[in-house]
Protein backbone atom coordinates (compact mmCIF):
# COMPACT_ATOMS: atom_id res chain seq x y z
CA UNK A 1 0.00 0.00 0.00
CA UNK A 2 1.33 3.40 -0.89
CA UNK A 3 0.56 5.90 1.83
CA UNK A 4 1.41 9.23 0.26
CA UNK A 5 2.14 10.95 -3.00
CA UNK A 6 5.84 10.93 -2.17
CA UNK A 7 5.83 7.20 -1.56
CA UNK A 8 4.08 6.65 -4.86
CA UNK A 9 6.67 8.70 -6.70
CA UNK A 10 9.48 6.79 -5.00
CA UNK A 11 7.95 3.42 -5.81
CA UNK A 12 7.74 4.39 -9.48
CA UNK A 13 11.28 5.69 -9.44
CA UNK A 14 12.56 2.41 -7.99
CA UNK A 15 11.16 0.67 -11.05
CA UNK A 16 12.95 3.12 -13.33
CA UNK A 17 9.79 5.01 -14.22
CA UNK A 18 10.33 8.75 -14.14
CA UNK A 19 6.96 10.27 -13.27
CA UNK A 20 6.05 13.92 -12.80
CA UNK A 21 4.15 15.15 -9.76
CA UNK A 22 0.84 15.10 -11.61
CA UNK A 23 1.06 11.44 -12.49
CA UNK A 24 2.18 10.39 -9.01
CA UNK A 25 -0.74 12.31 -7.52
CA UNK A 26 -3.31 10.81 -9.89
CA UNK A 27 -1.97 7.33 -9.38
CA UNK A 28 -1.91 7.70 -5.62
CA UNK A 29 -5.49 8.94 -5.58
CA UNK A 30 -6.71 6.23 -7.94
CA UNK A 31 -5.19 3.52 -5.74
CA UNK A 32 -6.41 5.11 -2.57
CA UNK A 33 -9.96 5.64 -3.78
CA UNK A 34 -10.17 2.30 -5.55
CA UNK A 35 -10.92 3.96 -8.86
CA UNK A 36 -9.54 3.25 -12.28
CA UNK A 37 -6.78 5.50 -13.58
CA UNK A 38 -7.55 6.89 -17.03
CA UNK A 39 -4.41 7.87 -18.88
CA UNK A 40 -4.57 9.89 -22.05
CA UNK A 41 -1.73 11.34 -24.07
CA UNK A 42 0.06 11.23 -27.38
CA UNK A 43 1.30 7.81 -28.49
CA UNK A 44 4.63 6.79 -26.99
CA UNK A 45 4.61 8.84 -23.78
CA UNK A 46 4.57 5.82 -21.50
CA UNK A 47 0.89 5.19 -20.77
CA UNK A 48 1.07 1.43 -21.05
CA UNK A 49 4.33 1.43 -19.16
CA UNK A 50 2.56 2.72 -16.04
CA UNK A 51 0.59 -0.52 -15.75
CA UNK A 52 3.66 -2.66 -16.26
CA UNK A 53 5.58 -0.74 -13.64
CA UNK A 54 2.67 -0.98 -11.24
CA UNK A 55 2.52 -4.74 -11.53
CA UNK A 56 6.21 -4.83 -10.60
CA UNK A 57 5.72 -2.42 -7.71
CA UNK A 58 3.01 -4.61 -6.20
CA UNK A 59 4.54 -7.84 -7.42
CA UNK A 60 1.24 -8.91 -8.91
CA UNK A 61 0.27 -10.26 -12.32
CA UNK A 62 -0.46 -7.86 -15.16
CA UNK A 63 -3.54 -8.71 -17.18
CA UNK A 64 -3.74 -6.83 -20.42
CA UNK A 65 -6.74 -6.29 -22.64
CA UNK A 66 -5.82 -4.72 -25.96
CA UNK A 67 -8.95 -3.06 -27.36
CA UNK A 68 -9.83 -2.90 -31.03
CA UNK A 69 -12.87 -2.03 -33.06
CA UNK A 70 -15.57 -4.63 -32.55
CA UNK A 71 -14.10 -6.23 -29.44
CA UNK A 72 -16.95 -7.98 -27.64
CA UNK A 73 -17.72 -10.16 -24.68
CA UNK A 74 -16.40 -13.30 -26.38
CA UNK A 75 -12.95 -11.81 -26.77
CA UNK A 76 -12.81 -9.66 -23.68
CA UNK A 77 -14.60 -11.63 -21.01
CA UNK A 78 -15.27 -15.28 -21.73
CA UNK A 79 -16.26 -17.78 -24.34
CA UNK A 80 -17.37 -21.35 -24.08
CA UNK A 81 -14.98 -23.86 -25.50
CA UNK A 82 -17.31 -24.96 -28.29
CA UNK A 83 -15.20 -27.69 -29.91
CA UNK A 84 -14.70 -29.26 -26.53
CA UNK A 85 -18.39 -29.06 -25.70
CA UNK A 86 -19.29 -30.72 -29.00
CA UNK A 87 -16.75 -33.48 -28.51
CA UNK A 88 -18.00 -34.06 -25.00
CA UNK A 89 -21.59 -34.34 -26.17
CA UNK A 90 -20.64 -36.79 -28.87
CA UNK A 91 -18.50 -38.84 -26.52
CA UNK A 92 -21.40 -39.16 -24.10
CA UNK A 93 -23.66 -40.36 -26.88
CA UNK A 94 -21.22 -43.12 -27.77
CA UNK A 95 -20.99 -44.25 -24.19
CA UNK A 96 -24.72 -44.59 -23.85
CA UNK A 97 -26.24 -44.93 -27.30
CA UNK A 98 -29.98 -44.60 -27.43
CA UNK A 99 -30.21 -43.12 -23.92
CA UNK A 100 -31.40 -39.59 -23.26
CA UNK A 101 -28.32 -37.42 -23.70
CA UNK A 102 -27.53 -35.49 -20.56
CA UNK A 103 -25.97 -32.08 -20.84
CA UNK A 104 -24.90 -31.62 -17.24
CA UNK A 105 -21.57 -30.05 -16.80
CA UNK A 106 -20.89 -28.81 -20.27
CA UNK A 107 -21.54 -25.32 -19.02
CA UNK A 108 -19.07 -25.55 -16.15
CA UNK A 109 -15.75 -23.85 -15.59
CA UNK A 110 -13.92 -26.70 -17.26
CA UNK A 111 -15.43 -25.61 -20.56
CA UNK A 112 -14.95 -21.91 -19.99
CA UNK A 113 -12.28 -19.94 -21.77
CA UNK A 114 -11.39 -17.04 -19.54
CA UNK A 115 -10.49 -13.88 -21.39
CA UNK A 116 -8.64 -10.97 -19.72
CA UNK A 117 -11.57 -9.29 -17.95
CA UNK A 118 -12.73 -12.54 -16.40
CA UNK A 119 -9.18 -13.42 -15.43
CA UNK A 120 -8.95 -10.08 -13.67
CA UNK A 121 -11.92 -10.76 -11.43
CA UNK A 122 -11.29 -14.48 -11.04
CA UNK A 123 -12.05 -15.47 -7.46
CA UNK A 124 -9.04 -17.78 -7.57
CA UNK A 125 -6.68 -14.79 -7.63
CA UNK A 126 -4.75 -14.61 -4.40
CA UNK A 127 -4.07 -10.89 -4.75
CA UNK A 128 -5.34 -7.94 -6.75
CA UNK A 129 -3.90 -8.06 -10.26
CA UNK A 130 -3.21 -5.01 -12.40
CA UNK A 131 -5.74 -4.87 -15.22
CA UNK A 132 -4.58 -2.82 -18.18
CA UNK A 133 -7.32 -1.86 -20.63
CA UNK A 134 -5.23 -0.55 -23.46
CA UNK A 135 -6.45 1.93 -26.10
CA UNK A 136 -10.07 1.88 -25.05
CA UNK A 137 -10.87 4.55 -27.65
CA UNK A 138 -10.53 1.85 -30.31
CA UNK A 139 -13.40 -0.20 -28.92
CA UNK A 140 -16.95 0.89 -29.70
CA UNK A 141 -19.51 2.50 -27.38
CA UNK A 142 -21.28 -0.80 -26.72
CA UNK A 143 -18.14 -2.20 -25.23
CA UNK A 144 -17.55 0.92 -23.23
CA UNK A 145 -20.94 0.65 -21.57
CA UNK A 146 -20.27 -2.97 -20.76
CA UNK A 147 -17.01 -1.95 -19.15
CA UNK A 148 -18.82 0.67 -17.16
CA UNK A 149 -20.89 -2.05 -15.54
CA UNK A 150 -17.85 -4.12 -14.77
CA UNK A 151 -15.96 -1.21 -13.23
CA UNK A 152 -18.79 -0.34 -10.90
CA UNK A 153 -19.15 -3.68 -9.16
CA UNK A 154 -16.43 -5.96 -10.48
CA UNK A 155 -18.74 -8.82 -11.18
CA UNK A 156 -19.71 -10.62 -14.33
CA UNK A 157 -22.85 -12.64 -14.97
CA UNK A 158 -22.62 -15.67 -17.18
CA UNK A 159 -26.15 -16.88 -17.91
CA UNK A 160 -25.30 -20.60 -17.76
CA UNK A 161 -23.03 -20.33 -14.76
CA UNK A 162 -24.16 -17.49 -12.53
CA UNK A 163 -22.44 -14.41 -11.23
CA UNK A 164 -18.68 -14.34 -10.73
CA UNK A 165 -17.33 -11.77 -8.36
CA UNK A 166 -13.81 -10.53 -7.69
CA UNK A 167 -12.39 -11.29 -4.27
CA UNK A 168 -9.63 -8.77 -4.79
CA UNK A 169 -10.57 -5.73 -6.80
CA UNK A 170 -8.07 -5.38 -9.61
CA UNK A 171 -6.06 -2.20 -9.99
CA UNK A 172 -7.40 -0.82 -13.25
CA UNK A 173 -5.42 1.29 -15.69
CA UNK A 174 -7.20 2.49 -18.82
CA UNK A 175 -5.36 4.16 -21.66
CA UNK A 176 -6.72 6.11 -24.60
CA UNK A 177 -5.14 7.81 -27.59
CA UNK A 178 -8.20 9.99 -27.98
CA UNK A 179 -9.22 8.91 -31.43
CA UNK A 180 -12.63 9.48 -29.95
CA UNK A 181 -13.88 11.00 -26.73
CA UNK A 182 -14.72 8.49 -24.02
CA UNK A 183 -18.12 8.68 -22.43
CA UNK A 184 -18.55 10.89 -19.38
CA UNK A 185 -20.13 8.09 -17.37
CA UNK A 186 -16.94 6.10 -17.74
CA UNK A 187 -14.74 9.04 -16.91
CA UNK A 188 -16.71 9.51 -13.73
CA UNK A 189 -15.40 6.18 -12.51
CA UNK A 190 -11.83 7.15 -13.18
CA UNK A 191 -9.15 9.50 -12.00
CA UNK A 192 -8.03 11.34 -15.10
CA UNK A 193 -4.49 12.13 -16.10
CA UNK A 194 -3.05 13.52 -19.31
CA UNK A 195 0.56 12.46 -19.81
CA UNK A 196 2.43 15.19 -21.60
CA UNK A 197 5.77 14.95 -23.32
CA UNK A 198 8.41 15.15 -20.59
CA UNK A 199 10.61 18.20 -20.09
CA UNK A 200 14.17 18.04 -21.36
CA UNK A 201 15.54 17.18 -17.91
CA UNK A 202 12.95 14.47 -17.30
CA UNK A 203 13.49 12.94 -20.68
CA UNK A 204 17.23 12.87 -20.18
CA UNK A 205 16.67 11.15 -16.87
CA UNK A 206 14.46 8.58 -18.57
CA UNK A 207 17.13 7.83 -21.16
CA UNK A 208 19.79 7.55 -18.47
CA UNK A 209 17.75 5.16 -16.39
CA UNK A 210 16.51 3.00 -19.19
CA UNK A 211 19.67 2.94 -21.28
CA UNK A 212 22.60 3.19 -18.91
CA UNK A 213 24.92 2.04 -21.70
CA UNK A 214 24.39 5.10 -23.84
CA UNK A 215 27.03 7.82 -23.48
CA UNK A 216 26.11 11.01 -21.64
CA UNK A 217 27.00 13.22 -24.58
CA UNK A 218 24.95 11.21 -27.05
CA UNK A 219 22.00 10.99 -24.68
CA UNK A 220 21.97 14.75 -24.14
CA UNK A 221 22.12 15.45 -27.86
CA UNK A 222 19.43 12.92 -28.70
CA UNK A 223 17.07 14.38 -26.13
CA UNK A 224 17.72 17.96 -27.20
CA UNK A 225 17.20 17.02 -30.84
CA UNK A 226 13.94 15.21 -30.10
CA UNK A 227 12.69 18.10 -28.00
CA UNK A 228 13.41 20.43 -30.92
CA UNK A 229 11.68 18.07 -33.36
CA UNK A 230 8.54 18.17 -31.22
CA UNK A 231 8.34 21.90 -31.70
CA UNK A 232 8.17 21.45 -35.47
CA UNK A 233 4.80 21.11 -37.12
CA UNK A 234 4.65 17.37 -37.73
CA UNK A 235 1.84 14.89 -38.26
CA UNK A 236 3.26 12.60 -35.63
CA UNK A 237 5.87 14.05 -33.29
CA UNK A 238 8.19 11.46 -31.76
CA UNK A 239 7.25 10.14 -28.32
CA UNK A 240 9.50 9.02 -25.52
CA UNK A 241 9.41 5.51 -26.99
CA UNK A 242 11.03 6.92 -30.14
CA UNK A 243 13.66 8.73 -28.10
CA UNK A 244 14.62 5.47 -26.41
CA UNK A 245 14.60 3.52 -29.67
CA UNK A 246 16.75 6.10 -31.32
CA UNK A 247 19.27 6.38 -28.52
CA UNK A 248 19.52 2.61 -28.42
CA UNK A 249 19.95 2.33 -32.18
CA UNK A 250 22.63 5.00 -32.20
CA UNK A 251 24.38 3.13 -29.44
CA UNK A 252 24.36 -0.02 -31.57
CA UNK A 253 25.76 1.94 -34.48
CA UNK A 254 28.64 3.01 -32.28
CA UNK A 255 27.86 6.72 -32.60
CA UNK A 256 29.18 8.83 -29.76
CA UNK A 257 27.45 12.00 -30.93
CA UNK A 258 24.94 13.19 -33.52
CA UNK A 259 26.17 14.21 -36.94
CA UNK A 260 24.21 15.20 -40.07
CA UNK A 261 25.01 11.87 -41.70
CA UNK A 262 23.92 9.85 -38.68
CA UNK A 263 20.70 11.83 -38.31
CA UNK A 264 19.90 11.48 -41.99
CA UNK A 265 20.46 7.73 -41.93
CA UNK A 266 18.34 7.08 -38.86
CA UNK A 267 15.53 9.61 -39.17
CA UNK A 268 13.14 6.76 -39.91
CA UNK A 269 13.37 5.61 -36.31
CA UNK A 270 11.85 8.76 -34.89
CA UNK A 271 9.50 9.78 -37.73
CA UNK A 272 6.79 7.46 -38.92
CA UNK A 273 5.36 9.44 -41.86
CA UNK A 274 7.11 10.14 -45.13
CA UNK A 275 5.70 13.69 -45.11
CA UNK A 276 7.36 14.32 -41.76
CA UNK A 277 10.66 12.93 -42.99
CA UNK A 278 10.42 15.23 -46.01
CA UNK A 279 9.80 18.24 -43.79
CA UNK A 280 12.74 17.46 -41.54
CA UNK A 281 15.36 16.09 -43.88
CA UNK A 282 18.07 18.50 -44.97
CA UNK A 283 18.07 22.12 -43.85
CA UNK A 284 15.63 21.74 -40.95
CA UNK A 285 17.46 18.75 -39.53
CA UNK A 286 20.75 20.61 -39.78
CA UNK A 287 19.30 23.60 -37.94
CA UNK A 288 17.85 21.42 -35.18
CA UNK A 289 21.14 19.60 -34.92
CA UNK A 290 22.95 22.89 -34.43
CA UNK A 291 20.50 23.71 -31.63
CA UNK A 292 20.95 20.30 -30.04
CA UNK A 293 24.73 20.46 -29.96
Amino acid sequence: MLRSIEETAEALAREAYVADAGLSTSLFLALRMGKALLLEGEPGVGKTEVAKVLSRVFDTPLIRLQCYEGIDVAQAVYEWNYPRQLLELQARREHAPGAQLHTDGIYSEAFLLKRPLLQAIDAANTRAPVLLIDELDRADEEFESFLLELLSDFQISIPELGTLRARHRPIVIITSNRTRELHDALKRRCVYHWIDYPSREKELEIVRRRLPGVGERLAAQVVSFIQAVRREDLAKPPGVAETLDWAEALGHLGASELSPAVVDATLGIILKYQDDVDILRGAVATRLLEEAR
Binding site: G22, E181, H193
Partner: peptide
Amino acid sequence: ALEWVNLGSREQVFYTCRSLLVRRQ
Protein backbone atom coordinates in the same frame (compact mmCIF):
# COMPACT_ATOMS: atom_id res chain seq x y z
CA ALA B 1 -8.82 13.08 -1.05
CA LEU B 2 -7.54 16.32 0.46
CA GLU B 3 -7.36 14.51 3.79
CA TRP B 4 -4.60 12.34 2.39
CA VAL B 5 -2.33 14.94 0.96
CA ASN B 6 -0.10 17.58 2.37
CA LEU B 7 -2.21 20.74 2.37
CA GLY B 8 0.91 22.81 2.92
CA SER B 9 2.18 21.80 -0.49
CA ARG B 10 0.59 23.90 -3.17
CA GLU B 11 1.81 21.42 -5.77
CA GLN B 12 0.09 18.48 -4.12
CA VAL B 13 -3.14 20.36 -3.70
CA PHE B 14 -2.99 21.52 -7.31
CA TYR B 15 -2.48 18.05 -8.73
CA THR B 16 -5.04 16.51 -6.41
CA CYS B 17 -7.65 19.03 -7.52
CA ARG B 18 -6.68 18.53 -11.14
CA SER B 19 -6.81 14.73 -10.97
CA LEU B 20 -10.30 14.73 -9.61
CA LEU B 21 -11.93 17.78 -11.17
CA VAL B 22 -10.65 17.72 -14.76
CA ARG B 23 -11.62 15.00 -17.18
CA ARG B 24 -10.60 16.43 -20.51
CA GLN B 25 -7.28 17.49 -21.88
